[in-house]
């Protein structure tokens, strides 16, 4: 008799918790993939497709599902390190197929050569090129991610990638070019 009671009690408890879990899985269902979202936040959002996916978000989703973490060329080693930290995996060197130089660039349209074919406009993932059929096109530099996708479709090769000009605003301090300036107190006092 006591065995039956025990089985009943355990069974009721099991049913109760099962129902609770089932309820929770419906009530607190997480929309979307939080890991993919976090990965997407780490990617540089150039939408260049060099990873083989049509944009940064698809790649983030692929990484969340086990794709290699070293395919983001614009992000470079920094991004790989961040992804590795988030995923808890080993840092890998950038995929050999994707080796590029990481100098920030923006597209530039040589306007006298542009024939107004709109092919680059269709290729731009962030709508950073303005123009219309048979009208000259131009790039909005501030919006351009430097993804390179507009260069190939141009039938007259009038788009080139130019490095972003260095100004005093984006200048990075270069330790080697500035001698260390420090007052030597002891020698001063002697002279004085």
């Amino acid at each position: 008799m006591s065995i039956i009671i025990a089985i009943l009690v355990i069974g009721v408890i099991g049913l109760f918790f099962g129902a609770l879990l089932g309820f929770a899985s419906i009530k607190f269902k997480v929309e979307g993939d939080p890991l993919a979202e976090q990965l997407d936040a780490l990617l540089p959002q150039t939408q260049c497709g060099q990873c083989g996916y049509p944009g940064c978000k698809p790649y983030a989703e692929a990484v969340a599902n086990g794709e290699a973490i070293n395919k983001c060329a614009p992000g470079g080693d920094d991004t790989i390190k961040k992804i590795a930290d988030l995923m808890g995996v080993e840092v890998q060197p950038l995929d050999g197929n994707h080796e590029t130089d990481n100098t920030p660039k923006v597209a530039f349209i040589i306007e006298e050569d542009c024939i107004g074919c709109t092919k680059c406009i269709q290729a731009c993932p962030v709508d950073a090129i303005i123009g219309a059929t048979k009208q000259m096109h131009t790039v909005i530099i501030d919006e351009c991610t430097g993804c390179d996708l507009c260069v190939a479709p141009c039938p007259v090769d009038c788009i080139e990638m130019r490095p972003i000009n260095q100004t005093t605003r984006n200048w990075q301090w270069d330790l080697n070019s500035i001698p260390v300036v420090q007052l030597d107190a002891t020698s001063q006092e002697k002279e004085v």
């Binding site: 997407d40 990617l43 540089p44 959002q45 150039t46 939408q47 944009g55 940064c56 978000k57 993932p125 962030v126 709508d127 950073a128 919006e143 991610t145 984006n170 200048w171 990075q172 301090w173 330790l175 500035i178 260390v180």
Partner: peptide, 29 residues
């Protein structure tokens, strides 16, 4: 000098983050 370098890097990173966010929004749009 180390601080100046780090400050410039952080400022640059902030700019890049802003740009990335903007690019993302534009891409989605």
């Amino acid at each position: 000098h180390y601080y100046r370098v780090a400050k410039a890097e952080i400022r640059q990173q902030q700019l890049l983050d802003l740009k990335a966010e903007k690019a993302k929004v534009r891409f989605e749009a």
